[in-house]
Write a protein that binds this DNA or RNA. Sequence first.
DNA 1: ACGAAATGAAACCATTTGGTTTCGTATATA
DNA 2: TATATACGAAACCAAATGGTTTCATTTCGT
Lengths: 110, 110
Amino acid sequence: MGEPQVKHDVFQAIADPTRRKLLKLLADKEMPVTMISGHFPMSRTAVSKHLRILSEAGLVKERRVGRENRYRLDPEPLVELKRWYGYFERFWENKMAALQLLVESDDPVE
Amino acid sequence: MGEPQVKHDVFQAIADPTRRKLLKLLADKEMPVTMISGHFPMSRTAVSKHLRILSEAGLVKERRVGRENRYRLDPEPLVELKRWYGYFERFWENKMAALQLLVESDDPVE
DNA sequence: ACGAAATGAAACCATTTGGTTTCGTATATA
DNA sequence: TATATACGAAACCAAATGGTTTCATTTCGT
């Protein structure tokens, strides 16, 4: 019983650029740690720690398969982000109308 | 010429809960620093440093009026946030449909 | 049975972060 | 003019962050 006691929340989790890249990488593919770390200019252990933080925030799920640990995105906690953002939508009136068009076009960011 | 050279980006800026509260506080009201800091259990100087970070990220605008420095929300950089999570929306298909309803209802978060 | 692969835990380190208190300066007001 | 108010800069500090290397454990493939 009691709260889920998450150590890192979504906002903290996505604050780091490496972790944002991790989420994109794991968005459509499930991958084991060593393969994941091949995409980053740091040690496997460092990547592993980032994955841990993402996992604490609920943004990735891990699945043990033999000796490897496979990770995959779980986008569900991003809803909190969307809600938070949604609160502010009421505050930009005219200014945002133009920029909204930019958002609608879905060229990838980062 | 050259990039705007922002020290703190939006993701870092909103990672801290105090700064998220600041944004909500300044969403519809322009306020001077001392009045703002009255809403937080820390020194005026500490609040001032948070405001500086938000300012670097472009999320607040400051305006000098006499001896006071008035701050107000500028939501424009939040568009980057929307674009970012917008990328992931294509990855939550069925699961998100239900939660979407929650988002649409606008009870305040935090 | 044995060696290699996959991983996390632990200890360690430098830098950043979030807070403090003190001080100087500009502006308002009595 | 003198005093009080509003604020940021600076120096400082403890804890968190993001990285490293080393080591032990589990599992796979000969």
